[in-house]
Design a binder for these strands. Structure first.
Length: 497
RNA sequence: GGUCGCGUGGCCGAGUGGCUAGGCACAGGUCUGCAAAACCUCCUACAGCGGUUCGACUCCGCUCGCGACCUCCA
């Protein structure tokens, strides 16, 4: 069906993608924990896998894209004291877990929408799948790979490792882990330090709790993904994605749980995006260096020199390969903003251009070059989703487009076929696959008419050589964020910042 | 400490055993009443030291520097 190759984190190699069920792809991506606001670092996986989702569909696959919402666990709202959760408080003063989760889920959806990320096919919540998780845990206990202690259930990693290749995904060696794992609370309940919780007993003040065969508690962090992915995608599915920081312990644990529950490994291809760094350090809660999406879009953050449009951020992320780290800086974002504006304008110009209709190109060399650039886009995407190279090729073609409009390139330089290919390539890759869209809102007719009037008045002034008036109109509009451009053919167009 | 990864021109960033990615910035030019935009030109880098090779930025080794994971983490 395709020549798609992708880097499989499990084998650390690029592999040809073969769908388990021909024509269909099951894609699971670890979604957000909705106990706080999404930040720039979170944007990366969702944009990365939005590209994967879009490209797989472009290749003709029917994709079921499942991305969970982690809304169960040991939650605290950002900035609030833990005491808030203590049930002694009056009902309305107390933070309701559902309230918190709902607030941040909405905020997350708002962010994804602004980034023009497609919605997943299914967005299951951990709290909506407690039964499935309990069932899976019971199954693992029955098979002898988990044990209960004081109302909590732990997975027996040491036993698992006797038979299965524990640590392969993350490159861990069990013996090393046994020595280096730190002492944490609850360790004394575990048989071995490396064991992880499938179910946690809830202390009295804990606000999220469900009844289970082991008493009141809440599910461990890893089990939800195993339970939900197998429910919606089957015991084995094609692609599982997430951030590199989830390799261990999260994904390693998922493999272990699912392998015991189902008798075989759950995932055929693991994909992991790299981190966004800031001043060379990973952006993350623990480093206290996050820029929230709301801050990013408004520019209200000490580290931000200006606001950055979601499309600029998306473009900036796609200019780098998803497996490389990407360092945040105002300079980099500003460069992306200018770059994207230019490329998007070329795209808009291209849609308006008319081809003279010649079937033989006036410039055979350029014609061939453009065809190559266009065809390479597919090769680049097939090679582990190399969006950076796709964008580079689109930039190669921007001068051709602008040149045709500006007259530096002959209108018939390209054949009609090649011109159509060029138009299609921009639409397909820039819009459909990379998911870029205009930064500015669609103009209203009223504004358009007002500007047409001003442009007409300026044109009159210019023919009278009354440049004081014409420049005043242009400058005042510029102050208001409307930029006029005198085109070669004498017409005037405008862009709104 | 263990495991893994990275180090590219002013900045951001692809990528490859020989065939100058791309973007942003800078500089010069064309066009324009001026400007902006656009177009053309300029800017040839790959941490250091060895090795393999006809040839390495690309492979191997060492050194230095940086980071990620090992704990919630996208």
């Amino acid at each position: 069906m395709s020549d798609l190759h992708l880097h499989n984190s499990y084998t650390r190699q690029k592999e040809k993608f073969e769908a388990l069920v021909p024509g269909h792809v099951g894609l699971y991506v670890c979604g957000p924990t909705v106990s706080g606001e999404s930040h720039l670092g979170h944007a990366r996986p969702y944009i990365t896998f939005d590209i994967v989702y879009r490209y797989l569909r472009h290749l003709g696959y029917r994709v079921r894209y499942v991305r969970n919402i982690t809304d169960a666990g040991h939650f605290e709202e950002e900035g609030r004291e833990a005491e808030d959760k203590v049930s002694k408080k009056a009902q309305l003063e107390r933070m309701e877990p559902m309230e918190l989760v709902h607030k941040y889920t909405n905020l997350y959806h708002w962010g994804m929408h602004r980034f023009n990320c497609e919605e997943p096919s299914i967005e299951p919540t951990a709290t909506g799948h407690i039964i499935e998780q309990i069932n899976m845990i019971q199954d693992i206990i029955a098979k002898g790979y988990a044990y209960e202690v004081n109302g909590s259930v732990y997975f027996d990693v040491k036993k698992y490792a006797e038979t299965y290749p524990y640590g392969k995904l993350s490159g861990r060696v069990l013996d090393d882990l046994l020595e280096t794992t730190r002492d944490l609370e609850g360790q004394d309940e575990k048989r071995n330090k490396v064991d992880f919780a499938l179910w946690k007993n809830a202390p009295p003040e804990h606000i999220m709790r469900w009844t289970s065969p082991w008493g009141e508690g809440f599910p461990g962090w890893h089990i939800e993904c195993s339970a939900m992915s197998s429910k919606y995608l089957g015991e084995t599915f094609d692609i599982h994605g997430g951030g590199m920081d989830l390799l261990f312990p999260h994904h390693e644990s998922e493999i272990a749980q699912s392998t015991i529950a189902h008798g075989h490994a759950p995932v055929r291809y693991w994909m992991h995006n790299n981190m966004i760094t800031i001043n060379g350090k990973k952006m993350g809660k623990s480093y206290n260096n996050v820029i929230k999406l709301t801050e990013l879009f408004t520019g209200e953050h000490p580290m931000l020199e200006q606001a950055y449009h979601p499309m600029v951020v998306r473009f900036y992320i796609l200019q780098t390969h998803y497996r490389s780290t990407l360092d945040f800086s105002n300079e980099a974002l500003q460069a992306s903003e200018r770059a994207f504006r230019r490329l998007w304008e070329a795209y808009e110009v291209l849609q308006e251009l008319q081809h003279p209709g010649n079937t033989v190109p006036a410039d055979g060399e350029l014609d061939g070059q453009v065809r190559t650039w266009c065809h390479e886009c597919k090769e680049f995407m097939d090679d582990d989703f190399n969006t950076a190279k796709v964008i580079a090729n689109l930039f190669e073609m921007a001068p051709v487009i602008n040149g045709i409009k500006g007259g530096q390139v002959a209108a018939g330089a390209l054949s009609a076929d090649t011109f159509a290919l060029l138009q299609d390539t921009f639409k397909t890759y820039l819009v459909d696959i990379l998911g870029m869209q205009a930064m500015q809102e669609q103009q209203t007719d009223k504004l358009d008419k007002v500007l047409a009037l001003l442009i007409e008045m300026r044109k009159d002034a210019r023919t009278r050589k009354d440049f004081a008036t014409s420049d005043q109109i242009r400058n005042k509009l510029a102050e208001a964020g409307v930029l006029l451009k005198d085109e070669k053919d004498g017409t005037v167009s405008y862009t709104i910042e």
